[in-house]
Amino acid sequence: MEENKRLVKVPTMAEMAASGEEPEILFWVGCAGSFDDRYKRVTRAFVQILEHIGVKYAVLGTEESCTGEPAKRAGNEFLFQMQALTNIEVLNGYNVKKIVTACPHCFNTMKNEYPDLGGNYEVIHHSTFLQQLINEGKVRVKEGGSFKGRRITYHDSCYLGRANDIYEAPREVLAVLDADLVEMKRVRANGLCCGAGGAQMFKEPEPGKKDVNVERTEEALATLGTGGNSVIATACPFCMVMMNDGVKNKDQEENVQVFDIAELIAQAEGLTK
């Protein structure tokens, strides 16, 4: 089957600028998407989708740096602004207009907090981007692909949902899979956090009865039932880590997998074979 595959050369902004070109979108990968082994698979799936639809995109590659978001949520406004101002210089230097990212934390901070510091871009989260592709007919999942009939529950990311009122886009993306979509009790504006936001990802939790991700995973598992072969869908690298850990904590890896919505679409489209 090798002859049916093509090696992807991910274009960088530097290369584009050198040849006098400007991409339509900048794909902001984020730190988790660049370094976390699990989330790198999401980055790759998203690139496969970008290649599949043939949009003119580029990444910053090694020129990318942390948005400063975790520093800001942890109270280190100084470090946040250092990062933000440096990033804005790079982005403005490349004349970037439109940014797509698979991380709700990068998305939120670039969309809402960068403008105060001179960074004005159209920032789109990959859930909204995928929804647009589906609406435009650029992504057509044939008969729901391999997810037909499987139970999927979507876990709302706080920084997409309450922070930016994005509740429907990821759900509409999942709707094309023709799966059995089930909702947890605490969803949308009432969604329960995975426990990683506000820089919790980088520290041990305070003393308590339970970890937040375990509480949330229990809810997801109760919603998915005991049928097995079911999926917790996420749209955030931190949520993914937390839900994965939760599933492991409950010894349910055999029955439940955690996927990002981009992975589900790429799989259903047959891009990952």
């Binding site: 049916n4 595959k5 992807v8 990968v29 660049s34 090694t62 990318e64």
Partner: peptide
């Protein structure tokens, strides 16, 4: 340039060997 202790030089390694049909 990342909240974890990874080398910034490795930031783009995810892009190695991605295939599409």
């Amino acid at each position: 340039g990342a909240p974890w202790a990874f080398s910034p030089a490795d930031r783009f390694n995810w892009a190695d060997e991605i295939y599409v049909p």
